[in-house]
Nucleic acid binder design. Structure first.
Lengths: 136, 136
DNA sequence: TGTACTGTAATAATAAAAGTTACAGTATGA
DNA sequence: TCATACTGTAACTTTTATTATTACAGTACA
C-alpha cells in the first residue's frame, strides 16, 4: 500500500474532526502536515469520492467531514488510499514454463486477500473519533 | 512494506520446498522467478539471517530450507522482508507548532502496531507447506 | 468584480526499487 | 593443485514511484 498517503489522510481527518462544522482550506491543512497544499487537495479528492469529506469551492470554501467522526473508520481511510494491494499483487512476471512460476501469482493473491481481510477487520474497529481521543 | 520482495521470498521458499534436500543455485531460482540472480542472492541473505534457509558456497553450492516447510510460517517471511512499517511510520515531519501535528506520529504508530499484530497473526496461520499444497 | 478558495493538469525534483556488472572468496572434484 | 561453479557483496545504472511545484481555469462570496 501507499505508505505516506494513509498518514496524510488520517492527519487531514483528524484536523477536520477538531474543527467540525468549519470549512478548512487546503493551505491550513497543509500547514499542520507540512506538505504541499496541492497534495492535500488530491487526498481530499480521494476522501471525497469515498464520502468521508465534503468540499466547498469558491471564497470561504474548504473541506469538512461528511459525517460524524464516530461513523468514520480507519478501514475506510485504508480503502480510500489503497491502490496497489497490501503485499504487492503480481508485480513479477514469473517464468510460465516453471510449474511454480506459472501458478504462484494466483496463490499469492489468495494469501494476500485473506491477510488484507484481517487487516481491514482490525482497522474497522477504530473510528476516527476514538483515534482523536488520543490527543486529549 | 516492501511490495515485491515478499513475493520473491515466498517464491524462493516454494521452489526450495519442492526440492528439499537439494542445494539450488541462485541462477536456477532466478530462472523461475524471472529476475536477476543477484536479487535472489540478496533475498537469500535475508532469509538466511532469519534462519529460514541455509546456503553453501563453492562449487555445487546453493541454498535449501533450514527447517521443514511445516515449521516455516508466512509471518516469518513477512518479518524477514519488512523494513519500513506496514502503513509507513513517521515519514512526514508535521508542524510541531500544531497540537495535532506534534502528536500524530505517536498516535499513528500505535495504530499501525495494532494493525500489524493482526496481520502477523493472520500470516502466522499459514505454513509454507500449506501454501505449497495449493500447487498440487 | 476582486478575492480567496477548489480542482486538476503538466511538469520537475527527489527518492526508492530493481537490475547489472564486477570481482573476491570458497568448496569441489578432475 | 587448479579450473570450475558457485556465493557474497559492493558499486553503479536504470527504471519506476512518489512528492513537490507551477500554473491556471472554475466557483462562490461579499
Amino acid at each position: 500500500m501507499n505508505s505516506g498517503r494513509f498518514a496524510i489522510s488520517v492527519h487531514i481527518l483528524t484536523l477536520l474532526t477538531f474543527s467540525e462544522d468549519e470549512w478548512k482550506s487546503s493551505e491550513y491543512l497543509a500547514g499542520s502536515i507540512n506538505i504541499n497544499p496541492v497534495l492535500v487537495r488530491k487526498e481530499l479528492g480521494n476522501l471525497r469520492e469515498r464520502g468521508l469529506v465534503l468540499s466547498k469551492e469558491g471564497k470561504s470554501g474548504g473541506s469538512r467531514l461528511a459525517k460524524p467522526a464516530d461513523q468514520i473508520f480507519m478501514s475506510e481511510v485504508y480503502e480510500a488510499v489503497k491502490q496497489k494491494d497490501l503485499l504487492g499483487k503480481g508485480i513479477n512476471s514469473p517464468n510460465p514454463a516453471c510449474p511454480v512460476g506459472r501458478m504462484i501469482n494466483d496463490h499469492l493473491d489468495s494469501l494476500y486477500d485473506d491477510a488484507e481481510k484481517t487487516l481491514l477487520a482490525s482497522l474497522g474497529k477504530v473510528s476516527l473519533s476514538e483515534f482523536c481521543k488520543k490527543f486529549d
